[in-house]
Design a protein around this nucleic acid. Structure first.
Lengths: 192, 192, 192, 192
DNA sequence: AATGAATGAGGGTTCATTCAT
DNA sequence: CATGAATGAACCCTCATTCAT
C-alpha cells in the first residue's frame, strides 16, 4: 500500500475541490456573479490553473452539474418501492426525492436558473428529469394495474408531483408537512 | 381639453416604452445579459437619459416587475368565483391564473431567477404571492364550510396549486390538459 | 466665429490623436505587441474610452490604415506626369512614390506584416495597389503608343517597379541612388 | 554497424520533427499566434519536453530559421552559372532562386515579418542576404569585364533583382512569366 | 430634457515558462 | 528523458455609472 498520494491523485483531488468550491460560490452569487478570479482566490490557486482543469467557465458549470447530478440515484429511489402498497410507496418516493432535492437545494436552484442560457446544461437536466418521470409513470401504472389506483393520465400526474416537490424544495424554509398533506389530497381526494 | 400632450405626459410615455423594451431585452438575454448601452441603442436614446428615468439598473428591474405585476388581478380572479360550485370555481381560477402566467412567461421567468440577487424584488414578488395564497386559502375555506370539501390544510394545498401552475407555465411548451387532469386528481382522489 | 471648440470637435481631435499614437506604437512593437492598455496609458486615457472610438483592436488597425492610406495621392502622382517625356515622367513618378513610401515607412511595414492575419486590411491595401498598378500600366501604354517605349508586358513591369520601390522603402536606411540606377537599367538596358 | 539508434540520434530526430512541426504551425498562425501548448499537443509531447530542446520560444524561432536557411545553396546557385553567357546565367540564377523562395514561401514570409521584433533573427537573415548579394555582384562584374554587360552599379542592381524576386515569391499566386519579362526588360532595355 | 464622452473596475481567457516528480 | 501541474502577468474587451455640455 502506498500511503503517499501520487501527483495524479492530488490533481484529481484538487479538481474535485474546485468543483465543490465553485458550487458554493455559484450558490452564493450565481454563475454570472461568480468570477473566475474570485474562485481562484478562494481556492488559493492561480487563475490559470483553473483553466488547466476546466476549459471554460461554462465547462465548469457543466462539471458542477454532473458532479451533483441526481441521475444515479433516481432510478433506485423508485425501484426500491416496488411491491409495496401504493400509498406507502409514493410517500417513500416523495420523501426520499424531496430529501435529496433539499440537500442540494442551492446547487439545483442555480442550475435551474442557468437552464435558459446554457443549452447543454438544459439538455442534461432535462434528460435526468425525463428518466425519473418514466420511472414514476411506471410505478403509477403498476398501481393502476394492481387495482390500487383509479385509471388516470400518469404522465401529467408524475410531472405535477415532481413540480411540486422540486419547487417546494427551492424554498429556503421548506414546509415540513407538505408531502403528507399533498399526497393525501391527491390520493384521498378532496371531494366528499 | 388640451390636444397637445404635456411634457409630463410625454415623459411618462417614454418611461413606459423603456420599461416595455427592457422587458423584451431581459426576456431575451436575462437581466445581467442586458447592458444599459444595448437598451439605449434599441430605444434610440442616449445612455444618460435612461438614468433620468431610472436611478440604476436595479431600479429598472424593479419597475419592470411592478409594471408587469399580477398583484392587481390576482384578487379579482378569486373573488369572481365566489358563490359558484367549488369544482367549477377552482377550475376557473386555475385556468385564468395559468393563462396570465403563460402570457408573460418570459418576464416572470427572469424575475423569478433574479429573486436571489435582489432582495427588494424578492420581497415584492413574495408579497403578491402571499396575497394570492391568502385569497385561495379563503376560497378553499368557504368550500370546507359549505360542506363541499373535506377539511384539510388549506395553506399547504394552496401553495401546491400555485407551485404546479407556476412551474408548468415556465415550460416553453406547456401541456394542455394539465389543469383538468391535475385538479381532477386532487378533487376526486386517486384511490378507489 | 466660434473660437471655442465644441465637444464634438474635441472628440474628433481625440480620435485622430489616438490613431496617430496607435501608429507610433504599432511601428515600435507591432500590432500584436501593442496592448490596448499601453495605448490608453500613453494617451492618458482610460481603456474604455478607446472602445468608445474603435469597436475593437482590429478596427483600430483598419482606421490607422485608412488614415495613412496613399490611395488619394496615387492617382495624381501618375497623372501629373502625362505629356512629359517617358524617362522624365517615370523618374518623377518613382521618386514621388518612393518619397511617400519612405515618409510612412513605419506604418506601411506594420500594415504589410499584418496583411496575412487581417483579410479586411489585405483587401483594402490590395485595392489601392491595384489602382496604382492600373495607372502605371496606362502610363507605360501611352509611352508605347507614342513610340518612346518598346512594346512589352506592362502589367509585369508595373508590378516589378512597385515591388522594388516598396521593398526598398522598407529598408531602414534606403540607398539613395537606387531609383536612377534601377530606372536607367530598365530603360537603357544592360546589354551592349 | 549499430542497427539500434542511439539516444543522441533519437533526440536529434525528435528535435528535427519539432522544428518541422513548428514551421508548419508558424506558417499557419504566425509566430505569436502559435502557442507552445499547441505545438506540444500536435507533437504529442509534453510542454516541458520542448524546453529540453529549445531554451525559449524565441530560440525555437531561430532554429527554425537556421533549419530552413537558404544560405548553403545560395552560393552554389550562382557559381553553377559561371562561364555561361550572362543572359542564360542570370535567367538560371533567377529561376532557381525564385523556385527556392516559392517552395518555402510560408516560412520565409513569417521569418521576414518577425525580423523587426527579433534582432538575432534579423542579423542572420541579413547575413545570408548580403552573402548572396556579394555572389550576384561578382557575377555581374564578370559579365562587365567580359564585355557582355554595360558598366553599372552592380550593388544596386543586385539588390533590385533580389527584391523583385523575393517580394514576388511572397504572392500567394505568383505570376508565371515574371522572371523572363523582367529580365528581358532589364537586359534589353525598353527605350528604342 | 437630453447628449455621449469619459471613467475605472472588473470580466473571461491565454500564455511562456518553471519545477517537483 | 519526460511529464503536466502550477504560476502570474498580461491579454482584449464590457460594463454601470457620471457629468460637462
Amino acid at each position: 500500500m502506498n500511503v503517499q498520494s501520487t501527483r495524479a491523485e492530488r490533481a484529481e483531488e484538487r479538481k474535485v475541490q474546485l468543483i465543490q468550491l465553485a458550487m458554493t460560490l455559484f450558490a452564493e452569487e450565481g454563475w454570472a456573479g461568480t468570477s473566475m478570479r474570485k474562485l481562484a482566490q478562494r481556492a488559493r490557486v492561480s487563475q490559470g490553473l483553473i483553466y488547466h482543469y476546466f476549459s471554460s467557465k461554462e465547462e465548469l458549470l457543466l462539471q458542477v452539474a454532473d458532479h451533483y447530478s441526481l441521475a444515479p440515484v433516481l432510478g433506485s429511489i423508485v425501484q426500491a418501492q416496488e411491491g409495496k402498497q401504493v400509498r406507502q410507496g409514493l410517500l417513500a418516493i416523495c420523501r426520499e426525492l424531496y430529501a435529496h432535492l433539499c440537500e442540494r437545494r442551492d446547487i439545483y436552484w442555480i442550475l435551474f436558473r442557468e437552464t435558459n442560457n446554457h443549452p447543454d446544461l438544459c439538455a442534461r437536466l432535462e434528460g435526468t428529469r425525463c428518466e425519473f418521470i418514466e420511472h414514476l409513470k411506471a410505478y403509477l401504472q403498476t398501481g393502476i394495474e394492481a387495482g390500487e389506483l383509479k385509471s388516470h393520465d400518469t404522465q401529467v400526474l408524475a410531472e405535477c408531483l415532481l413540480r411540486v416537490l422540486f419547487l417546494a424544495s427551492l424554498d429556503s424554509d421548506p414546509p415540513e408537512p407538505l408531502i403528507e398533506v399533498f399526497l393525501d389530497a391527491i390520493l384521498g381526494g378532496l371531494l366528499r
